[in-house]
């Protein structure tokens, strides 16, 4: 076991090797590994999130579909109701219109009747007066006998 200059030589080589490893080897490899790790973690995260989002979207789609279905049923329902209502309303208003028209016609008829009666009465009164004038050959004062005439015409 003889110690000699080899020891110093080995020391120097050792220092140079460690320096080289420290500067040119270790950081590059470790950085690449760390970066890859981060990338993989990010990828896994994204996949999980996408999965979650898909689940949410599916739930939403199902909800929208069921909503649309119930809405459609509601619409059909209300449309049906409205239709019957319209029919009923039509019927009612038709009936009322008929009644009204009938009443109006009746009123007109009555009006016409009474008017005709009045006319007739007037004409008969005039005829009676004329006849009476002729009968009694005396002048009858229309104004004096208006009461009489009116009573007469009312009796007709």
């Amino acid at each position: 076991m003889n110690i000699n200059l080899t020891l110093i030589g080995q020391s120097l080589i050792f220092l140079v090797f460690v320096w080289f490893c420290w500067q040119y080897v270790w950081p590059h490899i470790l950085n690449a590994m760390k970066e890859r790790e981060a990338k993989i973690a990010e990828g896994l995260n994204n996949a999980e999130r996408a999965d979650h989002e898909l689940e949410l979207a599916q739930k939403k789609a199902v909800k929208i579909l069921s909503d649309a279905k119930s809405q459609a049923a509601e619409i059909v329902d209300s449309a049906n109701k409205r239709a019957t209502q319209i029919v009923e309303e039509g019927q009612a208003s038709g009936q009322a219109e008929g009644e009204r028209m009938k009443a109006a016609a009746q009123a007109e008829i009555e009006l016409e009747t009474s008017r005709a009666r009045e006319e007739l009465r007037g004409k008969v009164a005039a005829l009676v007066i004329e006849g009476a004038e002729k009968v009694i050959e005396s002048e009858v004062d229309a104004s004096a006998h208006a009461d009489l005439l009116k009573k007469l015409s009312e009796k007709l």
Partner: peptide
């Protein structure tokens, strides 16, 4: 070779 091992250990 002890020179080699001691060379490293003394560094």
């Amino acid at each position: 070779d002890p020179n080699i091992t001691l060379g490293m250990s003394f560094t």
